[in-house]
Structure formats: C-alpha cells, structure tokens
C-alpha cells in the first residue's frame, strides 16, 4: 500500500521537535499578551438558569488501577445515598460518575445556581463527598458539612471552564481578530478542562417541569 504519511519514527521526532517550540511560544505570548477572561463566566443572560452543566474533574491521588478501583468502589458503595440525595435535590436532570484517565469525574445537568446545587449535595449526601475526598489529590478540608464554603470553592476550581458564548465575544478587548486563535490558545493554557458547548433535546424546561409534563409526578 502506498502511503504519503511519514513513518512512525518521523512522526515521533516531529512531535518532539514542534511541541517544545509551541510550548515556548505559548509561554512567550502568555506574558506578552495575556488574556483575561472572567473566571466565573456562569451566565450569559439573567433568565438563563435552567439545565446548567457541571463537569467536575477530580484527579485521583492514586492513579494506578488499584487507586481507580478504590474510587469505583467508593461510588458503588454509596448508590443509595446518591440516588436518594439526587431525588431530594429535585433539580437534577442527569448526573453520572466516570473514571477518565486518572480522574474521577462527576458530570451533571441541573437547574438553578451551582452554589445552591452543591450546598444541597452537601446536605443530602455530604458523607459521599467526604469518602471521595479521601481519594483525590489536594482535597479540601473535610467533613464538607463543617467546611461548606471551602468545599464549594474547591469544587468550582475543579469544574471545567465553560465557553458559553461565541469565541469573539469571549475576548471583547481584542483589537485584532487575527489574534483570536492565539487568545483561545492562551485561554486553554489557563484551563486544562473546558466545556466547549452543550446541546439539549428539550431546552428551557426544568427537571421538575419535565417530570410534571410526562406524568411521573414532580
């Protein structure tokens, strides 16, 4: 078979040669033309409060398969706590735990304000979070019920940055649109985990409204 692709060795060498170059360029531009984006871009409009996303990426302290199994077990051991808690919180559309690489992740779609949502969690299944916090890198002080503010700050710091609007409007102070690609690079440099967009099959409805409309009692 004829191929125009360079060999694996050439690809490997290319990556090693170009990536340090890009890394240096990013370091240079980071200082030369830093981008500032609001760290808490949590809303685009006052009425935009339903079906918000939380993408919690929590690096495990022990990233080996043994450590990952410990995380899986901690989640499995708390199914009742989690399901009952989510039912009581009432504002959750979806929530799931994933192990991705060396991270324990919790992805969810909820209505209303993130901080209220997290506080409701602390109150209904704080013990689950306490158990999980024993497994993650640089955990906040526990129990979370006695340190709710620190816990919420920690969660917000581990929630993926969300790009909610279009890219140009993220950088209203950029005077040259040719620099927008660089601004995106520098934004990503600040945020290892980023939510790029979202879609909903039934936008503009709360979880309780869906339950009411589908006849399963809100």
């Amino acid at each position: 078979m004829v191929t125009t692709q360079p060999s694996k060795w050439v690809q490997f060498l290319q990556s090693k040669l170009t990536q340090p170059g890009e890394w240096l360029l990013v370091q240079y531009w980071k200082h030369r033309a830093p981008v500032t984006t609001p760290t808490w871009v949590w809303k685009t409009a006052p009425g935009d409060n339903l079906q918000q996303c939380m993408n919690l990426v929590m690096p495990l302290a022990d990233k080996t398969d043994v450590g990952r199994a410990r995380a899986a077990k901690a989640v499995a051991a708390n199914v009742d706590e989690i399901f009952t808690g989510l039912n009581n919180v009432g504002t959750v559309h979806f929530a799931r735990f994933d192990l991705i690489g060396g991270n324990l992740c919790m992805f969810s779609v909820y209505d209303g304000d993130l901080e209220n949502y997290l506080r409701d969690f602390i109150s209904v299944f704080g013990s689950v979070f306490d158990a999980l916090m024993e497994l993650v890198e640089a955990p906040p002080p526990t129990p979370c019920g006695l340190h709710p503010e620190a816990f919420i700050d920690w969660i917000i710091a581990h929630d993926a940055f969300q790009i909610t609007g279009d890219v140009p409007s993220l950088f209203p102070d950029e005077g040259n649109i040719a620099n927008l690609p660089r601004d995106v690079v520098l934004l990503l440099e600040q945020h290892p985990n980023v939510q790029l967009g979202r879609y909903s099959g039934y936008p503009g409805k709360s979880a309780a409204q869906i339950r009411l409309a589908t006849g399963i009692d809100w």
Binding site: T44, A45, D48, Q51, P203, G204
Partner: peptide, 18 residues
C-alpha cells in the same frame, strides 16, 4: 427569554432557550 437581545441581530441567543 429575559436578557435576550430582542432588537439587536448582532447578538445570538443562548442555546438553552425553549
């Protein structure tokens, strides 16, 4: 919904709208 630009076509609306 509230906060959406009603008379400004340069502004998009959020994808969470009904």
């Amino acid at each position: 919904g509230q906060g959406d630009a009603l008379d400004n076509p340069t502004k998009g609306w959020d994808t969470t709208r009904l």
